[in-house]
Amino acid sequence: MTQPVVTARNLSRHYESGGGMFSQRQVVRALSEASFSIDPGKTLAVVGESGCGKSTLARLITLIEEPTAGEFTICGTPGVPENWDSLRSQVQIVFQDPYGSLNLRHRVGSIIEEPLKIKRPDMPAAERASKAREMMEMVGLRPEHYDRFPHMFSGGQRQRIAIARALILEPKLLVLDEPVSALDLSIQSQVLNLLLDLQERMELAYLFISHDLSVVRHVADDVVVMYLGRPVERGSKEAVFGAPRHPYTVALLSATPSADPTRHRNRIKLEGELPSPLDIPAGCPFAPRCWKAQDRCRTERPELGDAAHAAACFYPEGTETA
């Protein structure tokens, strides 16, 4: 059996905020008890609305921040600060906005080579340049782009540059934080195809963070649905999309517009909005917006459990008894 690239157990990240002279410190529970693992060559998609903790998860896995509780390993090595330096070449990230993530004053070549300069200081410049050119070809950039500046490129091309930079160290895991949501539809499919090709060729594991369910359905192998910092459902793509069990997943799927005007569905209307992460309701975090909530949901928090297709709900869909 192959070793998973990442395994995470009960990862949590809490931030303290406020705390002036007269006010108490408050705790923002950005991420609580996330557990998952990703095998080489597989894609785990994390979906949820803004504020659900998906970007916090990305920051923990890319070793930008330390978790406040829980642990994770990357290629078998624990992701603790002592190991960060050696682990950083195994994990790389592609950000959402290619207009903000590239340094405008650097040429494309030096942007792509920068990780090598830092992580492989012994590598001669000529070898670095040839590696960068190889990588540019792989992501579909032309050799003459090597000396150009990022402002000369369109959004899709910039995202290719960002992908080339992330892959130059040959990482095992690529964290993709909304990689296509800033791109136009016709460009989006080009970038998605590129990501799928690279995954096949390099046996990459992807942690794919997105709010666009139609994209997730296309690229993911496994899906984690998050709500207010907690995973509420986890399972294979077929299971989660085919037979969603948590009411939130059901609502999310029904709210996503489908590009088929002939299909008329009964959309589940969710009342209200996401509660503030400063003030997470007792019991199930989804209970205030849930149409199935009972008294038990408001007092006791359902656990996700370890099943292959798990849902953190007392009354999951598909097991109707009431």
């Binding site: 989006q188 499919s189 080009q190 998605l192 296309h218 590009a259």
Partner: peptide, 23 residues
Amino acid sequence: AALLAALPERATERRLPTIPGVV
């Protein structure tokens, strides 16, 4: 036609049909 074909939810296989080039 190409724009509709590029929608991930209309995809029938792993590779999406694309529109080459840019606007």
